[in-house]
């Protein structure tokens, strides 16, 4: 996946049954971001696989002042990449992970 300079990881173990995930995002390579942002800060948030979209969460992060508008695409992409990976992992291990 193209590196956005952002890192998204599960904030807690994925029990594979809950559609709501706890994710954590932080800036790994500040040079790759265009706008101002806070270094060394991780943002933990919940993401519902059925109702949420990466773009929506990225928009909310911009609105909350975590990132500049110009970086919302990178934020959405990094969330999307991680969520896609989690969905694939869940498909491989359907029975309670």
């Amino acid at each position: 996946a193209e590196d956005t300079g952002l890192r998204v990881e599960l904030a807690e173990d994925d029990d594979c049954s809950n559609s709501s995930l706890g994710l954590r995002l932080w800036v790994e390579d500040p040079k790759k971001l265009k706008g101002k942002h806070k270094d060394n800060e991780a943002i933990e948030f919940s993401f519902n696989l059925e109702t949420d979209t990466p773009e929506e969460v990225a928009y909310e992060m911009v609105k909350s002042g975590f990132f500049h508008e110009s970086d919302s695409k990178a934020v959405a992409k990094s969330i999307r990449d991680r969520v896609t990976l989690i969905k694939k992992t869940r498909e491989k291990k359907p029975a309670g992970c």
Binding site: R7, W26, E28, K38, N40, E41, A42, I43, E44, F45, S46, V57, E60, M61, K63, S64, F66
Partner: peptide
């Protein structure tokens, strides 16, 4: 943890906490 801030936006809760130095260098 006093460094943790909770930000609410459109119903979603964001918890902000410091990234441990080791995580920054390791990734």
């Amino acid at each position: 943890n006093s460094l943790t801030q909770v930000v609410h936006s459109a119903g979603r809760r964001f918890i902000v906490s410091p990234v441990p130095e080791s995580r920054l260098r390791e990734s």
